[in-house]
Design a protein around this nucleic acid. Structure first.
Lengths: 207, 207
DNA sequence: GTTGGAGTTGAACGATCGTTCGAAAGCGCT
DNA sequence: AGCGCTTTCGAACGATCGTTCAACTCCAAC
């Protein structure tokens, strides 16, 4: 019958904050809004968090770390470059759809941080981008050079995937599986220039 | 020797505001920042604009109108659906790259408006999205049904194109022409599922 | 029953926000 | 010079912001 841990209450606070940040935006949201949404007093928020900016940083860094860690697992042991891309996309969209509020805050509120907070999140961003670029380099090593600038291709893919917070409803008629398959097909079809065999689609080879 | 018109001074104000909004974000920017950036006093701004929100609305609506009008011209008389898509992409990226600050404000500050302002911008968004979806329907009518959900494809393309404010530098080593060609290739290759003939690329047929 | 730390709070702080307003300044016209 | 209209401004308004702090409650340990 133990009450919630300090860490658990912080998680609850972060979760509530992510929801409000996603709806109203970081700067429009006041600490009083967050207090109301998480059921504590205004001053009570500051018992768990040093500042409003640290709150945003915790949301961004924790989820970014989770995405990267999950991506490493998803790609581990997979050698076919095409399937590695499929896994990368699949992992990204799965996590995005499962944590819409947090990922919208991560994608949309990228420039709201400053100082050390900003630098640390930017480091993760560089690491994640590098991971994708490496996979793209693998593809070209195996299937020959693409007729596309690799950097443009990488950021276009991130654009496709990160833009979904503007329109996608995980509970709508387009399931996450279909979304992921479509993005895989769209990107791979355009990047390697040929219809992608179903065997390379992660959804049908891992389940 | 006539001094600047009232409309010209408003344009100057909007341009300066777009730049500051793009850099700092709409809500972080104060009317005092805008006054300093445009060289007038704080109260002076309110001679040209009723409110901060109207300022944002004017930036968004004027540029959205320009994009839509320019798109109508670019597509006029073009019958081949594939080339119509190419023109659509080309027009979008051309305008985006030429008006980075304004288009970033339009893309990134979508949820900052409210009331009638929001409704009017949303109407334009619906019109623009509908235009793309119609072209996609044309493609499928000619080249057979795509193996992709049309809505997912449309929003993925918008994602690719609108995300560029997060990374693209028009003055960098990737020119607008290469960017546009790459996005065309990426999208068409994935959507119609085959290498796109150069003749269908707007850059090589219109010059 | 008393101590002490963890958790929570109401009230207040100075700063900054968007907006307003009356007055002054510029200026073509007579 | 004097009038009328547009343009500009300094100063102030009330509201809200992020943050702080002393005081309070709660409860396990002694």
């Amino acid at each position: 019958m133990a009450g919630p841990t300090r860490d658990q209450k912080l998680e609850t606070l972060l979760s509530a904050a992510a929801k409000v940040f996603a709806e109203r935006g970081y700067h429009e949201t006041s600490m009083r809004d967050l207090a109301r949404a998480s059921g504590v007093s205004l001053a009570g928020v500051y018992y768990y968090v040093q500042s409003k900016e640290e709150l945003l940083y915790l949301i961004q860094s924790r989820n970014f770390e989770a995405v990267i860690a999950s991506m490493r697992v998803a790609l581990h042991g997979v050698t076919d470059p095409i399937e590695r891309i499929g896994r990368f996309i699949d992992n990204h969209l799965d996590y995005f759809a499962a944590h819409m509020a947090e990922m919208k805050v991560l994608s949309h509120e990228a420039g709201a941080l400053s100082g050390d907070y900003l630098q640390k999140v930017n480091d993760m961003k560089r690491e994640y981008t590098r991971a994708l670029m490496d996979v793209l380099a693998d593809v070209e090593r195996v299937h020959g050079p693409a007729h596309l600038n690799r950097r443009v291709a990488a950021y276009s893919l991130f654009g496709m995937m990160n833009w979904i917070y503007n329109w996608y409803d995980p509970l709508g008629d387009v399931g996450v599986e279909m979304l992921s398959q479509n993005v895989c097909h769209l990107f791979l079809g355009g990047y390697v220039g040929l219809p992608v065999s179903d065997a390379a689609m992660p959804r049908s080879s891992a389940g």
